[in-house]
Design a binder for these strands. Structure first.
Length: 114
DNA sequence: AGTATGACGGTTA
DNA sequence: CTAACCGCCATAC
C-alpha cells in the first residue's frame, strides 16, 4: 500500500489522498487556509479542497479543524467543535475567540511549529 | 462528453 | 461590518 497510508480503490481519489496527506502534516497550534492547502498540494483550489474534506475529513484520522477559511473562520459545518480543538492546540485566536488569528497562526508550509 | 455542485477566495456594493 | 457576484477546479451523475 502507499506510503502515505491511505488505501486507494473505491475510496479517496489520488487528489483526495494528497490533500488529506497535506492536512495531516499541519502541526498543532498552526493552521492553513483551504487555498493554502491547494497551493501546497499543487492542484485544485479552495473549493476542491473543501469538497475533499467534506467527504473524507470526518472519515479519516485528519486534523480537519486546522484548515480554516481565508477570513480566519473555522468550518461552517462544525464551528464550535473546530474552535474547541483549535483552542486545545493552542492556536492564536482573534479577540472574541470565534476566528483564527491568521497573521500569527498561518503555517509557513515547512517552518516548524516553533 | 456536458452539466451541476460545493467545508473557497477575492472583489464590489 | 454584511450581502451579492463571479471565477475557480475536482467530482458526481
Amino acid at each position: 500500500m502507499p506510503e502515505h497510508g491511505f488505501p486507494h480503490g473505491p475510496g479517496p481519489t489520488p487528489y483526495a489522498v494528497s490533500v488529506l496527506d497535506a492536512v495531516a502534516g499541519i502541526p498543532a497550534g498552526r493552521v492553513l487556509t483551504y487555498g493554502d492547502v491547494a497551493e501546497f498540494v499543487g492542484a485544485g483550489t479552495g473549493r476542491t479542497v473543501g469538497t475533499v474534506l467534506a467527504r473524507y475529513g470526518h472519515e479519516e484520522d485528519v486534523p480537519w479543524h486546522r484548515v480554516v477559511r481565508a477570513s480566519g473562520e473555522p468550518n461552517p459545518a462544525a464551528p464550535a467543535e473546530a474552535l474547541r480543538r483549535l483552542s486545545a492546540d493552542g492556536t492564536p485566536l482573534r479577540p472574541g475567540g470565534t476566528r483564527v488569528d491568521l497573521a500569527a497562526a498561518r503555517w509557513g508550509g515547512r517552518l516548524s511549529a516553533r
